[in-house]
Structure formats: C-alpha cells, structure tokens
Design a protein around this nucleic acid. Sequence first.
RNA 1: GCCCCCAUCGUCUAGAGGCCUAGGACAACAGCCUUUCACGCUGCCAACACGGGUUCGAAUCCCAUUGGGGGUACCA
Length: 489
Amino acid sequence: MTQQVRTRFAPSPTGFVHVGSIRTALFQWLFARQTGGVFVLRIEDTDATREVEGAVQAIMDDLRWLNLLWDEGPDIGGKFGPYIQSQRLEKYKAAAEILLAHGAAYKCYCSKERLEALRAQQVQNKLPPGYDRCCRNLTPEQQAEKEKEGITPVVRFKTPLQGQTVVHDIILGDVTFNNNIVEDLVLMKSDGYPTYHLANIVDDHDMEITHVLRGEEWMSSTPCHIMLHNAMGYEVPQFAHLPMLLGSDHAKLGKRHGSTSIRQFREQGYLPEAMINFLALLGWSLDDKTEVISREDLVTHFSLERVSKTAAIFNYEKLQWMNGVYIRGLSIDELTEKVFPFMEKYLPPEIKRPLDIEYVRQIAPLIRERISTLKDAADYTGFFFLNELSYDAAMFTDKKMTAEVALTALKGAEAKLSALENFSTDLLETTLRHLAEELGIKAGQLFNPLRVATTARDAAPPLFETMAVLGKERCLKRIRAALVKLGGN
RNA sequence: GCCCCCAUCGUCUAGAGGCCUAGGACAACAGCCUUUCACGCUGCCAACACGGGUUCGAAUCCCAUUGGGGGUACCA
C-alpha cells in the first residue's frame, strides 16, 4: 500500500504573502487534494528579526480567502503539532544534539566579524566565498578554551567532503551535486533558534511530509537537506521544485513590477477564483487549449508531471482579462454583493453612505461586462449617485456635433421626457428614436448629448438602461442643468 | 568567480521523432455588431536562440555555444 500524500505550505511570517508563494501553496494544495492526501500549514518563524506582527493571521486570512484550506495547522492543530516552529525549539535542539553526538555536526566559535573578513578576502582574491571549516576539527581542549571565553557557539553541519548527492526531483529529474561544494551550513544559531535547514528537515520528518514542493530557489540547498535527512536517519521525502515566477524584465517578481502580495490583488478587486485559475496556469497546463478551468477540474486533473520546468513571467494583462471572465460569470446578486464594499470604499466621499444596495443591484447589470476588477465599479458608477454632475460643455461638441444641435436635441428630449409617465428602457428607446426623427437629426446626435447630460461621460453603460435606472426626476434635472450649461436658458 | 536549472510567438503555453505549413490564450492590429464604452464574433501579425551531430526523418534525442534565471547568510 502506498502511503498517503502529505504536503505542506511553510511560509515565514514576514509580511503579506507573495503571489509566488501562493502559487506554491496552490500546487501543494492541489497535489494533496488530487491524491486524497493531506495539506499542512506550518509557520516557519525561525528568524525573530524578520518577524512581522500579525503576519500569521494575514497568511491564514489570505489562504482562506482563496479557499486553500489546510487539514493541519497552527489554528486547528493536528497530530503533529505544534505547527509553529518557535514552539518546537526543543525538537531542533534535540536533533542538533544527536548530530553533535554522532559527529555529524560540530560547534563553531567563529565570530561574525571573522566570517565577514574571511568572505571579503575570498571575494577579493576571486575565490569562492564560503566558510573555511576552521572549527570543524577543534580538539576538546580547544573547545573548552573557547567556551571559557564565553563564546556561544553555533552548530554547523559536518558536510561529507567526498561523494555525490543526487536529488531525484519529480519535475527536474535527477540532479547531481558534488558534496565538496556543499558548505558546512549553520544548523543552530547562537540565539538558540534553528536555521531553516535544520528546522525544515526535522519538521518534514516529524510531520511525515511525503512530498516537498517548493520554489526552484531551494534547489541548491536540497543536497544539504538530503544529507541532513540521512544523518538523522530519516527517510528522504520526494522533492519537486517549481519554476520561478518572474516580472516583465525577467527578474524575480518584485514590487517594481506591480502588485506582488496576494492581499494587493484582493484589495484591487480580483476574485479568488480568477487568481486560482490564473496562478494554476503559471507553470501548469491541462492541454493545448484550456484557459478557464474551475477549481474542481483543477483538483481532478492536476498532476506534477504536467508542471513545466521553465520560469514564468507574471502577465498582469492576462490576469485582468481572466478576472473579467469570472466577473461576467457572476449572477447579479453575487456581483452586487461583491461590488458593494468596493463602491462603499472608493466612490467619491461626498456621496452619502451607506449606499442603497437595491440601487446598486439595479446598476450591477449595467457594469458587469464593463469592469475587469471589482474596484473598477467605483470608477464607472459615480454619476449614478452624485447630485451635481460636473463636466465641461465642450463634451457636447466634436467634429460632427455643434452646440446648436446639442441644444436642440436636449430641448426636444426635455419636452418629450417630462411627458413620459414610465421611464422603462423600451419606452425611452422608442420615444427617443421617434424624437430624433422628428428633429431630423441622427440617433447619435440625440443620444450622445443625452449621455453627456445624464452621466457626464462619453463612455458609459447603454443610455436607455442608464436613464431607466437613474429615473425620470434625476434625468430631467440633469438635462435642464445641461441646457443651462449650453446657454439655452 | 564557482555550483545548479532552464531555453517554442512580446507574454502564458500545447508539442514526449513523422499527425507541425508548429495549435490555443492574453496583448497588438484590422473589421463586424452597435447610441458611446464594453461584451461577443471574424480576421491578421507573431516563435521552435545558434552551431554541430544521431536518424530515412528532429521543435522533439545527444554535444558544445550563447542567452536567461537561481544559489553561493547565524534569511527563509
């Protein structure tokens, strides 16, 4: 019987989660779900200096928002807890002791100053930078002496000097490293915390992680991790290194490329479903044509075999398109509910809050196919709420439109519309089309000034539907204001 | 510098020796639809980095080259 797959997402609480990390989490989650396995959330807070207050909560919030739920984790526990590394310090200490006792690790008393000087010298002499293993073979007497000086040592791994280590990577294939290029990495820092290298192998073993999926930036330290597993007598998990996510200039995706934290996308009004779909396609594909794919289909079809080896550039435009696809797939009620908080937040401040949600519901169908993020809704709908529209009278005129024609059109409209009892879309359309005929002008010559008068924009949702939502009173008031603006009294 | 990885349209990718005159999507461009915008639809531009092999046959396999990326911390 093959054992159940167990994957883990192991972020550091150093701020909001990067989309690249989320892509990794997604693949870990998909792989676990696809195989009927377990997805573990573990917090790697072994660097106290980089810790950010509230970050653990933020990580969990974002994962929940994406519906990437974990089966074991800091909040819900599990049989291998605790799931926060700072609460597992004794385990790492014990592991370090074992390695020390077996002669697989040693105490190093070198000061930071010495290490820095050493590195500087190596760089200057164009030598490969790295620790010179100065403390690797200290005698007990020498050690006692250092201890007497009051130096708190770090624990370093006594890396095998000979031989090779082969990483059997599910995505990359077999990758061979010469052991002599692997450094004597620090396992325990002088502050009593383990480094990532130690903590991660101890926990992966304790938590029975079967598959380590992580970004390709970890490839170089993988031989060391394998050696550590071996030194501890642990079974080595399977590795799969995911291709990197890059920015438009082919450098590691960073702030200058645009939004990078998942939270930023959320705040701009991207839907979690769209993010999942988009991220899944960064490094994985179903076939030669599938672009829009549901979470369910992702779970049933995901496989590590179809993960690409090539780094992918994060294409913001495609994400935007895809978000639009998902927005258009929303029902009016769903869209209303989702768009409401964004409108509350981003509509001009002079608009009275709270907004009338029923009014928003009427507006929703008019913007559904015009917005690509929820935040866009606020840009499109201000005129629905404003009491006074402000715009330039020049908007009424262009190459084929004079102020006179605009004036005639609006005067005619004012007369016709004030007689109308019912402001339905259909009635508005027939009435206004007739009016254009009567006035002897083209439909556009009537509709365009009306659009400007009622919305203060030259690009807006369909005119009749817009006017129907605005209602008779608002429309007439705005048309009259436009007449004044045009100097027609 | 050293170690490791990668290499198909601008971008995401399909392609696991003949189905490839290289497919799809985003973007761009040109149209259609249309009261504007958008949606939708149609069309169009556009790639196997380079050089050697292997083979009857190579985008697919091998080797160099070049290019790009990652690592090289008491960070993860």
